[in-house]
Write a protein that binds this DNA or RNA. Structure first.
Lengths: 166, 166
DNA sequence: GACCAATGACTGACTGAGCAACTATAGACG
DNA sequence: CGTCTATAGTTGCTCAGTCAGTCATTGGTC
């Protein structure tokens, strides 16, 4: 144990992932804030905007974000108060509620998105040559598929599939 | 705008990074919890254990973690209460305080670490062939260096360097 | 068609984190 | 030497998020 066990190469390897994540997340958060959004709020808007009719049931929204169902209740509360979202009753199941993006919410998202994509371009995509980038993404996909089972949505965004019944 | 702007390939690329991060972090957190540690507590123990004499000034600890100084105060409070750490006055600067890992803290860390490394091996390192892994790490380093300026500690863990004066 | 477990959303109590204000000490400058 | 600014750490307040518990509704089973 001459050379610290605590400096194991494997640990520094994950450290790298953490630093990349933290670095990107911090820059993104700063830009979101310029548009009056938090990171979760942006994520919620994105998930809803990608969904048919810009709406999703609370539970499905929770499943697609990093939040618990009660967490979603609270974010949607705030965003509804700010006029970005509104709730809509589900006609076929009176227990369920949809979160729907308002006009104002879509506008906010569309105003935020270009800058966001630019940040991704500048700090991530643009840092690597196309071939290296592809290789990186391939490898990340392998790890993601291992570590995040059931999220293998593929490129068609088929995550919804099951529960969009209502 | 037939094919949603919201499904831009660049966005899914960062999504990949986020998912990998989240997936790994969740598994790690579960294992930490088996040993009665939170993620930040583990990180604090690691940072201190890597430092000379297993100690660091509060401010330096804050700089090396994802926490603010007040955040560090509170984590150290908790960990001191749990007997993992203790505070020690700095002889040459009476404003400063060291956080020092106790015997019990080192024991806890050493009991947690093997399982942690095993998780890294199973879910990250072991998912890729050596050459692909090296390529992945190289690419991540490029992005990290761009996005996380000043953290280019190199492989020698020289982050401390400046402020270990006292 | 009456009961009963499962499901969807919401709420109260609690935890953990940050910011801003505060205290004490250090170091610089006249 | 006395003052003035910068630095180290702690604390009060607030906010976001979880967990566990609650209520309403649903769908199955007899």
């Amino acid at each position: 144990m001459t050379k610290n066990l605590y400096d194991d190469a494997r640990i520094t390897a994950v450290g790298l992932v953490m630093e990349v994540y933290a670095g990107l997340a911090a820059r993104f958060a700063a830009q979101f804030e310029e548009h009056g959004l938090s990171t979760v709020e942006f994520e919620v808007l994105m998930r809803l905007a990608r969904s048919p009719e810009h709406q999703l049931r609370m539970t499905d929204l929770a499943a697609q974000t990093s939040l618990s169902t009660s967490g979603v209740t609270r974010v949607v509360d705030r965003m509804e108060r700010d006029g970005l979202l509104c709730r809509r009753a589900c006609p076929s199941d009176r227990r369920s509620a949809y979160a729907v993006v308002t006009e104002s919410g879509m506008a906010r998202l569309e105003e935020t998105l270009p800058g966001h994509i630019q940040l991704i371009q500048d700090w991530f995509i643009g840092q690597l040559e196309p071939a290296r980038l592809e290789s990186l993404l391939d490898s990340l996909r392998v790890v993601r598929d291992a570590v995040h089972p059931g999220a293998t949505a593929g490129s068609t965004g088929a995550t919804a599939g099951a529960s969009t019944a209502c």
